[in-house]
Design a protein around this nucleic acid. Sequence first.
DNA 1: GATGAATGAGTATTCATTCAT
DNA 2: GATGAATGAATACTCATTCAT
Lengths: 223, 223, 223, 223
Amino acid sequence: MARSRQLPASRPLRRDAEQNRQRILRAAAEVFTARGLQASLDDVARQAGVGVGTVYRRFPDKESLAEALFEERMEALVRLAELALAEPDSWVGLVSFLENAAGLLAADRGLREILMFASYGRDRVGRARDRLQPVVTQVVERAQRDGKLRSDFNPCDVPFIQFMLSGAAEYAEHVRPEVWRRYLALIIDGMRPGREEVSPLPVPALTPEEMVALMRSVRPVSR
Amino acid sequence: MARSRQLPASRPLRRDAEQNRQRILRAAAEVFTARGLQASLDDVARQAGVGVGTVYRRFPDKESLAEALFEERMEALVRLAELALAEPDSWVGLVSFLENAAGLLAADRGLREILMFASYGRDRVGRARDRLQPVVTQVVERAQRDGKLRSDFNPCDVPFIQFMLSGAAEYAEHVRPEVWRRYLALIIDGMRPGREEVSPLPVPALTPEEMVALMRSVRPVSR
Amino acid sequence: MARSRQLPASRPLRRDAEQNRQRILRAAAEVFTARGLQASLDDVARQAGVGVGTVYRRFPDKESLAEALFEERMEALVRLAELALAEPDSWVGLVSFLENAAGLLAADRGLREILMFASYGRDRVGRARDRLQPVVTQVVERAQRDGKLRSDFNPCDVPFIQFMLSGAAEYAEHVRPEVWRRYLALIIDGMRPGREEVSPLPVPALTPEEMVALMRSVRPVSR
Amino acid sequence: MARSRQLPASRPLRRDAEQNRQRILRAAAEVFTARGLQASLDDVARQAGVGVGTVYRRFPDKESLAEALFEERMEALVRLAELALAEPDSWVGLVSFLENAAGLLAADRGLREILMFASYGRDRVGRARDRLQPVVTQVVERAQRDGKLRSDFNPCDVPFIQFMLSGAAEYAEHVRPEVWRRYLALIIDGMRPGREEVSPLPVPALTPEEMVALMRSVRPVSR
DNA sequence: GATGAATGAGTATTCATTCAT
DNA sequence: GATGAATGAATACTCATTCAT
């Protein structure tokens, strides 16, 4: 009846929807952070202040939600890596990348589980690899060319270091959320050059192909 | 420990019961190792060849079962630490302890989840600390006295190193179960002395009290 | 009927709306035919290329949509019956009506479910009866007058025969969509005259009033 | 504590469990009959007076419950067929089998849906075929040998006749539950010998192999 | 008028835990 | 003591229907 108030311009629904999408993503991050990926989507919906149906409208299933979160964070990591590359000192660049990346993952149980366990369908694995890996590789190889990083270190070691640190962070979450910095320091000391002859790293790093296989092999996210 | 000599001898049921207890523990270890802590107690019972009721008679709930497993493994760790202490070379002792301990946790999803997530009520935390910590402390301090280990390393760093490594192991489980050795090598290189002045570890290790607090703080294991 | 000449000409929206209505009806027919009445209205809307809201604007609920489809098909049946009446040979007319009607229903899961299960509120039952029944009655009675059809056959038997055949058709849908012809032949042989004395049909056919009651009694269509 | 009252002999639980199983089966039959196979298992459980979990303990999923019902009824049909074979007059035997079988299916919506739609995994298809088909075949062929049944009738026509009749029965369920007898009579008249030359059945019956394919092809039971 | 976003009750299924036998 | 039957709350996901834009 009195329904004649067309909005000035643009498509209005889109805005609402996108807002909700963001709300859901934010809520998911919070809930997953607090209780891990096993938190229910009902909880996410409640936290977001929307109905479950809305969550499912935006994300066809729990895994997709996790993936969206994954992609978001992946972008943040890419930005960090790019920042590291912009840093004049290659070693400082590498170290601060490791530090900032670990800081991102620390105390975020959900994200960590997503990264470690979520199985990625579609093209996301690919995208992640294609975007992050080259930059990280540059960061690492630049430091090696500068003689700041042991020569048997490998770009594919980076995600492992991040997982190890975020593991430590999660474990100490409630007591000393920052201890992971201690272990990063330890690892960084081990990354310095000059060790290669005395104690070469005993096992080769994963190859890029293995990294992909690995991301494809992990178990699905839902219970 | 005290459990196996409650009564002088007599009462055959006791023996049966203890046998069942062991069977359940063994089954739980297998099932949890294979499918993680989220495996159902029905599965454990089936694997053990007993009814669920029997599991519940022996262990008041799922968590208690996890705790019992925890205690068992803790004993194994204590034995490893004692072995390390018996080793004439203090550095070799320390390194092989780290290696063996990590080997114990690697590829055992269940155990890792138990160690990281099971909440410990009763006196088990205490017992773990009282039994394992002193030996580890000796292993660490002996290496430091010998000048083989950086002086700012702390016995309480040991469990963190183990968690980090087992995290790496789990992540690469299906593709390269042994990569964790690579990261142990990296960390060990970082543990060498002579770094203290150049790059002191930036955050103090957890105090023993914090370790206890931490073990009390982690989230319960069951759904 | 009355719908298409509400307003003389003018108002283009009316035309749009009617077009949409037709599109939805067509889409519903396709979707329901393929996946049965349990297909979702979102699917119907997608197939029609309109929003769900539009479907709901045209049809207050899922059932109404089913009813509209019902009415449409009813018209088709009426046309078939009229054709049968135009056929000079009364027996041929009857038989080909049965055949064509069954062909219409065969392999159309949705239509069949609509005919058997949709509950009809409004005036549609009435209309269906008023339109189809008289023609069918003529087809049947003409054949009886000509001595081609057993005298205890009743016009109200016709819908039953159709349901039985479409049931057979649906059952064999994927293996032999045409078997229903076999059973139509069997039934037709049973409809021949000369049986009345030997084996009179043991139960009277439904009365027209019962047919209406029946159509009113069936369960609603939606979940 | 005071738990020393061993029962005289036999396994007591079994009895309870079996009782419950029967209760569930009975409840399922009622609920499915009343509201069709789309009734929820919660409803079945409520009707049976047990928790949902109990239903799932006995029947791994909804389909299994449907199958169990299927098997039960199948047995009843086998008994009917055996009875028909015991009848001295082959025609009377055949007719009363058709009649009794249809009576079994009439007004039981759930059973009908099960028979028509449930997909059968395991060996049940096989068992059904192996048990019922040979007897039905004998019933049919005996009547043909006696010249009481048209020669182009086929044992595989029997299930179709049953489905058609139960379809008619379901349709008229609330108004005239017995009308199906009228249509059985019609069909039976069509089954009499002497028609083969005048009006041979136009399409071959399904072969036994096609019957199996058909049973394997039908859609699964749950929504 | 049309759109599609939002809603939430409903469905199948799992599993820790209790308890009668 | 041992067994496994029973329970029901919890979980992921669907879909008819409403309503803001």
